[in-house]
């Protein structure tokens, strides 16, 4: 396994929650320095979240959607040139989750807005030269239940509409030469093994993501998951956690912040309980050649997390 080829996700920057100094994350200067720090930490490829929220209200410093990129750089190609000049040669993938649009009881609004922006994000992924577009096929289960208390009775209809949305994206992804990948975060309506009926109903071109921490929280053995469906895995996220969900936190409205017991669900890679040596050895044994991305989501210090991640990766090659 070539640790040098592993990408880092820019989800290590906390965009949404309070912490001192987080205001700098909304300005262009912060990101342009970050790219060179990412490169200095030994990463030449990045994954970028796609977040429509940054185009609302006239704030475009966070480069996480097409509007912001075009506002600050003109085109995706110009933005890629800036990345490249900082030592970041590739945007390997774009991620998208629809949580922003689960904000009322109107499912037409949810599917309309999610579909519109997911399509835009997929086009953006192609413009950025990304290998894959990884979509979370549902918002937080608990957030859906907040606005749709009868969710259990609506699950079939919700799934059908989700499949229609994903089917359209699959066709478009194939035309664009981007691999559509489904994520199965532990908090999703389609989390853990619940993703399987969804992926089985979609064309073979649609792939699955493997996220080590999410599977850990969902109580699914990542190695077994990988071995059983290696031919369908389209991306691998090396994420870490210590969190064991004993109280159905996955069903709560804010599942990455367990309400009865504050804890950091996602830990910096190498500081939690995920057995990275085992999973990377298995990836090598199975000759997995697809994208591998490290993620330090929820880190308390993104710059320390970059180096912690590099330190972990160094142990794979020595």
């Amino acid at each position: 396994m070539n640790a040098e080829a592993i990408a880092i996700s820019l989800d290590l920057i906390n965009r949404h929650h309070q912490e001192p100094n987080r205001n700098r994350y909304e300005s262009r200067y912060f990101w342009e320095e970050l790219y060179s720090l990412v490169s200095t930490a030994g990463f030449s490829a990045i994954e970028m979240p796609y977040e429509p929220v940054w185009q609302f209200g006239g704030r475009s410093g966070v480069p996480f959607n097409r509007y912001c990129v075009n506002t600050k750089y003109g085109t995706a190609a110009d933005f890629r040139a800036v990345l490249s000049a900082s030592g970041v040669d590739r945007v390997i993938g774009i991620t998208f989750d629809p949580n922003l649009f689960m904000r009322n009881g109107n499912l037409d609004f949810y599917f309309g807005a999610s579909g519109h922006f997911a399509n835009e994000a997929l086009s953006h992924a192609a413009d950025m030269g990304a290998d894959y577009f990884a979509i979370s096929p549902s918002p937080f289960y608990g957030r859906i239940a907040q606005y749709h208390p009868d969710l259990e009775g609506k699950t079939e209809a919700f799934t059908e509409r989700t499949l229609a949305l994903l089917g359209g994206l699959a066709t478009k992804a194939q035309e664009l030469g981007v691999t559509l990948v489904l994520r199965n975060e532990y908090w999703s309506l389609f989390g853990g093994m619940r993703i399987l009926p969804l992926i089985d109903a979609l064309p073979r071109t649609v792939k699955l993501d493997l996220d080590t921490a999410s599977l850990f929280v969902a109580g699914v053995d990542a190695s077994d998951f990988l071995k059983a469906r290696i031919e369908r895995i389209g991306s691998v996220h090396l994420t870490d956690t210590n969190f064991v969900d004993t109280h159905d936190v996955w069903k709560s409205p804010n599942p990455e912040y367990p309400r009865d017991h504050a804890t950091q669900v996602f830990r910096d890679p190498g500081t939690g309980s995920v057995d990275f040596a085992a999973i990377t050895a298995l990836l090598g044994m199975l000759d997995y050649q697809g994208p591998i991305i490290c993620s330090a989501r929820q880190t308390r210090d993104p710059f320390r997390a970059l180096l912690r991640t590099r330190a972990l990766l160094n142990t794979f090659t020595t």
């Binding site: 929650h17 309070q18 912040y257 309400r259 504050a262």
Partner: peptide, 21 residues
């Protein structure tokens, strides 16, 4: 920005997870 918890009952333990503010 978004405040994720209503009230943290295990404040000391939460602090010690990564010793940050």
């Amino acid at each position: 920005k978004s405040i994720p918890y209503k009230k943290i009952d295990n404040f000391r333990q939460f602090y010690y997870e990564d010793n940050t503010n």
